[in-house]
Design a protein around this nucleic acid. Structure first.
Length: 484
DNA sequence: TTTTGAGTTGTTCGA
DNA sequence: GTCGAACAACTCAAA
């Protein structure tokens, strides 16, 4: 009887799991393992909300495994040591794990592979970072040509999705630590951590169901699925126009392939209608995810430095008080403050406002993008090293295919354009809840009498803007000019 | 090797 | 209020 370990990292699912299916095809018995890595638990980049989401996800996975005749074993400690111990306790002769792209994960895995029988299986992305290359064999650094090549290769089909295994045979007897209950996921975080929840959301968003998990599919056919209005509504933080699937993709409660297949199916069903274009916009976002994973894979230096070296010389001001105001949502710009409070409270931020607050930190306050990157990682449930780094470097203008340096988001204009009624601001900044829409994004312009009436004195109940837009913009342009 | 066309997400200014 | 141009070249990808 051959035995193998299934070392779970960011693939907390039973459906369409290439690693699990490969292990089952190679061994008679499988031990599902999760190792709490002290390096990760103590990292400044690992936030408590994301950790809590992971632990809840493990609890759900553990229950799913029990229903399949298996169980989850949790260990804590140096990963190589723990794996070695598990191999000898079980008599397993192989370890199967989903390949990862982050520099830490790749260093860890190659170190382990030197002495233990580790087999890395693809599946984090639809296309492996080495599968989408230019004609000269080098990686792309511009998104559009990358995406063209990505789309030209054979697309995954529904039949490619791997079913949930009937049974996962695991011999009894392995000792497991309890899954930690601390930190706990706060009630303010609207992401139940399970594979079933991920499928439900995918179904609600695209109309497609990509796994049969004893879910009752209640398809309301009449209702237009959000993916078909995604192109218009995705930029509106006051609406629920996005899929909110990022935390599930982050931990593999949903596979990238399931998401891509759902996007393609939704586009096909709407073929020749403008709605198909909208589904294609969502597919493009999934390709962005793969692009930034490929960038991190081929250019690991981006994790600590600018992709373009000259931008490491940007003259940051790095003012602690400004940074603190940004972190706390006290900048005096409502759209920025609403977004930062949404992040800290809910563990998630709308994509449009991620760009706005990032631009504000980097350009208006001239604070190093790495400070913002770290703060995002500490609070985002979906915090992913590749996507987060890619996004920050794009906004800062330091990355691949980055925003031109003279593009400085105007937080007032952005607010008025994408949150026209001020609903997003009202939801997250209670001090501004009673303001008429006209002043939602310019509270400092309210006459004193109105400030009293709506119970919001600027400078007392809500701050004056900490920087003046026009002069901050000018200052940013001058700072970026120095680098040229 | 050289050349050519193109590049996520904006803002401001002046006509 | 609306519209087009300027912002600034530069690098990348592909023919």
């Amino acid at each position: 009887m051959t035995k193998a370990l299934w070392w779970i990292r960011r693939d907390l699912r039973l459906a369409d799991n290439q690693t699990l299916v490969t292990a089952l095809s190679q061994a008679d018995h499988i031990y599902p393992i999760f190792i709490l890595d002290p390096n990760l638990l103590e990292s400044a980049y690992v936030g408590q909300k994301r950790l809590a989401f992971l632990f809840d996800g493990l609890r759900h996975l553990s229950a799913q495994l029990k229903a399949k005749g298996s169980y989850l074993t949790v260990r804590h400690g140096d990963v190589r040591t723990e794996l070695k111990t598990l191999l000898s306790e079980t008599g397993a002769d192989a370890i199967y794990a989903q390949e990862d792209v982050s520099p830490y994960a790749r260093r860890r895995d190659s170190h382990i592979a030197e002495s233990l029988p580790l087999r890395l299986i693809p599946g984090l992305t639809v296309r492996h970072p080495t599968a989408v290359l230019k004609a000269d064999g080098k990686p792309y650094t511009v998104f559009t040509p990358y995406s063209r090549t990505w789309k030209k290769q054979p697309l995954p089909q529904p039949k490619d999705l791997l079913p949930v295994p009937e049974r996962i045979p695991t011999p009894q007897g392995l000792r497991s630590l309890p899954i930690p209950t601390e930190p706990a996921l706060p009630d303010t975080v609207p992401f139940p951590a399970s594979e079933a929840e991920a499928q439900k959301r995918l179904q609600n968003f695209t109309g497609q169901l990509q796994a049969q998990l004893h879910l009752v599919s209640k398809t309301s056919k009449k209702q237009q699925k959000p993916i078909y209005s995604y192109a218009e509504e995705r930029d509106r933080p006051d609406l629920d126009g996005t899929s909110c699937l990022s935390p599930y993709l982050r931990f593999g409660m949903l596979s990238a392939r399931q998401a891509v297949v759902a996007a393609i199916e939704a586009a096909d069903k709407a073929s020749n209608h403008p709605a198909a274009d909208s589904a294609a916009v969502w597919l493009n976002e999934l390709i962005w995810r793969e692009f930034y994973m490929a960038i991190l894979y081929h250019f690991p230096r981006v994790r600590g430095y600018s992709f373009r070296e000259k931008y490491d010389r940007l003259p940051w001001l790095n003012d602690e008080a400004d940074f603190s105001a940004w972190c706390q949502g006290q900048t005096g710009y409502p759209i920025v403050d609403a977004a930062m409070r949404q992040l800290v409270e809910s563990g998630w931020m709308h994509n449009r406002t991620r760009m706005i607050v990032a631009s504000f930190l980097v350009k208006h306050l001239l604070i190093d993008w790495r400070w913002g990157e770290r703060f995002f990682m500490m609070h985002l449930v979906d915090g992913d090293p590749a996507a987060n780094n890619g996004g920050w470097q794009w906004t800062a203008g330091t990355g691949t295919d980055a925003a031109p340096y003279f593009r400085v988001f105007n937080p007032t204009r952005q607010g008025q354009k994408f949150d026209p009624e001020g609903e997003y601001v009202r939801r997250w900044v209670p001090e501004l809840a009673q303001l008429p829409a006209k002043f939602s994004h310019t509270p400092w312009q309210m006459p004193t009498q109105l400030q009293q009436k709506v119970n919001c004195l600027i400078g007392r109940d809500y701050p004056q803007p900490i920087v003046d837009h026009k002069s901050a913009r000018q200052r940013a342009l001058e700072a970026y000019n120095q680098v040229k």
